[in-house]
């Protein structure tokens, strides 16, 4: 179960800097802070809803740094035309959540 995370270190750095720019409190971003960022992608709301479902791994309505990276990864892939999966593939689960 030692699968490398699909979010590459250079992508993680980019996502982390976005995360930090949004003003996380206690290391987490609430849904109302993340929502406008995802809406900025211009993806349909039903797609973004699924991205949220897949990335909010503990279902607390907030994203920590790693969950946010999963969300951003899925948004970027979707913008490149890749379908958002119905469930999170193991390589996309952050190592800290396995």
């Amino acid at each position: 179960v030692d699968i490398p995370w699909v979010v590459k270190p250079e992508e993680k750095m980019k996502f982390d800097s976005i995360f930090d720019s949004l003003g996380p409190v206690g290391g987490i971003l609430t849904g109302d802070k993340v929502k406008p960022v995802l809406l900025n992608s211009k993806l349909p709301v039903d797609i973004l809803g699924r991205v949220w479902e897949l990335s909010d791994l503990d279902r607390d309505g907030m994203l920590d740094r790693d969950e946010f990276s999963v969300a951003m990864y899925l948004v970027y892939r979707a913008l490149e035309g890749e379908p958002v999966p119905m469930s999170l593939p193991p390589p996309l689960v952050p190592p800290s959540k396995r």
Partner: peptide, 13 residues
């Protein structure tokens, strides 16, 4: 907090 009728924590629903 999210008026969705359920217990959703998804801000897009």
């Amino acid at each position: 907090q999210y008026p969705t009728g359920g217990s959703s924590t998804n801000p897009f629903l």
